[in-house]
């Protein structure tokens, strides 16, 4: 094995990870032995948030809102109940509110105090959402943050930034891309990115 610089960095990173691995393994053993946690529950929680719940849930909500005016009205009126009819509910999304983007107003969501995020419809938040650069700047300079995501809004579009300081959880309903008349909800879902439902992206754009 060559001992070049890259190899050294790799070893260093690995030992940092090992410290946390050891610390978390010790905690797991202790709490299981004490009976405070059930190991089967740990596996079920990981499986839920790694495999079952993610932004595809939210994409289904958005595509349905785009194609079903009655659902869109219900979503506007009581998002928690409307979203639950699609099977998405619970922890981290007990109280939902849908924010509909319009040509006049673009909505964007942040949690400046911690990392509140609508788990049942978007899954666990990405690292950038929980990071200090986003938490500090999304609220005070949203247009600069949007530019870093490659988003420039049309002139005349105002921004409303929602700070998730309570147990309300916000799902942005992006505007439906032009040229998608006649598309099915299933086809439209593919255009709904995670970022478009946070407000740091637009539907139909990558990533």
């Amino acid at each position: 094995m060559p001992h070049d610089h890259a190899d050294h960095d790799h070893t260093h990173d690995h030992s940092d990870l090992d410290d946390m691995t050891a610390r978390v393994m010790a905690m797991e053993k202790l709490l299981v032995d004490k009976g405070l946690v059930d190991p089967a529950a740990l596996d079920a929680i990981v499986e839920t948030y790694e495999e079952k719940i993610g932004p595809r849930n939210g994409a289904k909500v958005v595509a349905r809102a785009w194609t079903d005016p009655d659902f869109a009205a219900a979503l506007k009126d009581d998002a928690t109940t409307a979203i639950a009819t699609l099977g998405f509910s619970g922890r981290g999304g007990e109280h939902m509110m849908a924010l509909f983007n319009t040509p006049d107003q673009h909505n964007m969501v942040v949690c400046t105090l911690c990392s509140c995020y609508p788990w049942p419809v978007l899954g666990l938040p990405p690292v950038w959402y929980k990071s200090m650069p986003y938490r500090s700047r999304a609220i005070s300079e949203p247009r600069a943050v949007l530019a870093e995501f490659g988003v420039t809004l049309p002139e005349g579009t105002k921004i409303r930034v929602w700070d998730s300081t309570s147990e309300l959880r916000y799902l942005v309903i992006p505007m439906r891309p032009e040229g998608t008349e006649g598309w099915t909800a299933e086809q439209l879902e593919t255009l709904v990115t995670r970022d478009s439902m946070i407000g740091t992206g637009l539907a139909g754009a990558r990533p």
Binding site: T112, L113, W128, M132, P133, S136, A138, V145, F149
Partner: peptide, 14 residues
């Protein structure tokens, strides 16, 4: 209490 603070740099999405 991060809102409006400065100096944390750009948002880096992965």
């Amino acid at each position: 209490d991060a809102g409006g603070r400065m100096g944390f740099g750009p948002v880096e999405a992965e």
